[in-house]
Design a protein around this nucleic acid. Structure first.
Lengths: 210, 210
DNA sequence: GAGTATTTGATATTTTTTTCACAACAATTT
DNA sequence: AAATTGTTGTGAAAAAAATATCAAATACTC
């Protein structure tokens, strides 16, 4: 009933609303939000109705209320703690990425097998992979980012699931298949680029797309 | 008719086939591929029929032929040159990422406004942003990766489009709206994590999902 | 405070995507 | 060589998602 695309739109509405709020808006109509998020106003209202979000007929929606409700739905009222496995290229970039904290998401620890990468004293400690299960259990972390080379990805994903992780954001270039009751979102850079290249080629051939 | 999801599946079939080939498989049935890619066999055959890919009734498909045809469709017969803007956290990680080259994609140059980041002598040169338009035109690059902070993203995307870039892979945490005849794929890490968190929460509440 | 204009919310319609079902066909067996 | 088995390819059916429609509601005007 509530599918992935719908939640992604909610995230987008949230960002748009926060922008609108920063600009001083107090009320918003479904049409405004739709424009800001690149969808139709019907879509916005449909999505809202799915979560029981209501506005005032003719009066639109209160920006503050909307933001509050969406944050609630997305579970952003409390800080979400996330762990990271793989302190390589992408892992390190994610560790340094500042954008998460403002959004209520915090990488609380990273893990790697390479002893050289271990650093317990850092604000964001890098710990040996052997400590992963204990850490996750003790801190009841439920979401993990997987940024290890493809050869290790399957093995690490199993460790994560075994340790109690229920959601994995996978950057390894293999399609991880979710076990039961585990959500896996794959981000595959090569696939994204291939996609782009296909449509660019197609557009160049036909002069038009879609 | 041919939509984004379909091309993403093609990419997945390609990976699965390359794996199967490495394992020594010569023939494959739609069901095998479906399993490997996590879809139904109908889906596989439908996708193939869209691109005029045919097999032998009862004989399945030749792995080599399939790979060749998919590579052809995805435009992977020639090396695809890509540029990158933003040599920060994520940009640098992408520059170092080795996975692309094996897949026929090569980042040929990166660009940044920070003079400290400029490095013309590197194998993957980092050039000042002012040179972007010229470089893209002279090298007829059509795909670019955008990895700059959100404040700069809009401005840079316009520069890219003005310079002739037709496909943008956007890592900035804002939803870039595609101009006409420009494809934009957005990768928003926060949105991905929010998504994961929502479903993990939902699962924990209900004990089941989907 | 009646009348008007405008927006929501719910339902209906359309479009898109996926799955089903099965005829046509090609290996394999008898 | 006939029968059988198993797989493709495709058109039809079903499911899912997006969009359009419009009565009900409510803010605003005069």
């Amino acid at each position: 009933m509530v599918n992935k695309k719908c939640i992604i739109r909610l995230s987008r509405y949230k960002s748009a609303l926060q922008r609108l709020k920063a600009l001083g808006f107090v009320k918003v109509f479904s049409g405004n939000l739709a424009d800001a998020a690149g969808v139709t106003s019907s879509q916005v209202r449909k999505d809202f109705s799915l979560f029981g979000i209501t506005g005032n007929r003719r009066g639109g929606y209160s920006v503050d209320e909307l933001i509050a409700k969406i944050l609630e739905i997305l579970g952003k009222n409390e800080l979400q703690r996330v762990v990271l496995v793989g302190a390589g290229n992408i892992g390190t970039a994610l560790m340094r990425y500042k954008g998460f904290e403002s959004g209520g998401i915090k990488i609380v620890a990273a893990f790697d097998i390479d002893p050289e990468k271990i650093n317990r004293r850092s604000e964001l400690p890098v710990l040996p992979l052997e400590e992963f299960a204990d850490f996750v259990k003790q801190n009841s972390v439920r979401v993990g980012i997987l940024a290890v080379p493809d050869i290790a990805a399957h093995h690490v994903s199993e460790l994560m699931i075994r340790s109690g992780i229920m959601g994995i954001l996978n950057f390894a270039p293999i399609q991880l298949r979710g076990a039961d009751k585990v959500i896996i979102n794959n981000i595959n850079l090569e696939v994204e680029l291939e996609n782009l290249i296909y449509f660019v080629n197609a557009m160049q051939k036909t002069g038009q797309i879609e």
